[in-house]
């Protein structure tokens, strides 16, 4: 994971609740075995019509949201499938941060692992930030994970909370597996103390 501290850029707003990961990255793309190159498939069915032309009524096709780095959406963002391809696609499209009143558990955890910053704010706060966005000319914001602040173009600042452990991991771009492997001795000790009856290799196959 790459280290991330802060981002300044345009904001895109998709003001809908319960956006599921089947919409974020539809299943027809999940057959790719690569880790990169997911951005172009983001919100495919919502963004493009059957012939591959942009749907003018879909938020991300609003020119004022072009090249946005911050995505704002309604509550329970990322529900449904556990596909990590969803944060890969959001990141690949150019977003560094998603702001929403709440996130689905697996989606949030997947974001943390890849360094896409999920910022949760009370619903009224998100509503106020959304309302402040200029949907004709576009608006900029800064999200600072170190300072735990969101600063609007007018200089107004909102604070947010973030899991301290995960914040440190993202700020420093730490490798989770390497962190866990530091506790190799504890894992081995656990295995010794808790022998299991499960052995998938013993099943003839």
């Amino acid at each position: 994971m790459e280290a991330f501290t802060r981002t300044t850029g345009r904001v895109a707003v998709i003001d809908r609740p319960d956006i599921d990961t089947d919409q974020v990255i539809p299943k027809q793309f999940l057959k790719r075995i690569e880790r990169t190159g997911w951005g172009e498939f983001l919100f495919w069915d919502w963004r493009l019509d059957q012939d591959g032309n942009p749907r003018p009524d879909f938020e991300l096709n609003n020119p004022a949201f072009a090249d946005a780095k911050i995505l704002m959406a309604g509550r329970n963002f990322g529900c449904g499938s556990s596909r990590e391809h969803a944060p890969w696609a959001i990141q690949g499209y150019g977003f560094d941060v998603v702001i929403a009143p709440s996130f689905a558990d697996i989606f949030r955890s997947n974001c943390m692992k890849v360094g896409l910053v999920p910022v949760e704010l009370p619903e009224e706060r998100v509503r106020a930030l959304m309302d402040a966005v200029d949907t004709e000319n576009g608006s900029e914001m800064t999200v600072d994970l170190e300072a735990l602040t969101i600063t609007g173009a007018d200089g107004s600042t909102v604070e947010f909370e973030f899991d301290a452990f995960r914040r440190n991991c993202i700020l420093n771009g730490l490798d989770d597996i390497a962190l866990t492997l530091k506790h190799e001795a504890a894992i081995t000790e656990y295995e010794r103390a808790n022998p299991s009856r499960i052995d998938t290799l013993a099943l003839e196959h």
């Binding site: 596909r83 990590e84 697996i106 955890s109 997947n110």
Partner: peptide
């Protein structure tokens, strides 16, 4: 997610 799949594979 897939990062966690890798984490479980390794640890």
């Amino acid at each position: 997610g897939t990062s966690e799949v890798e984490h479980v594979m390794a640890t």
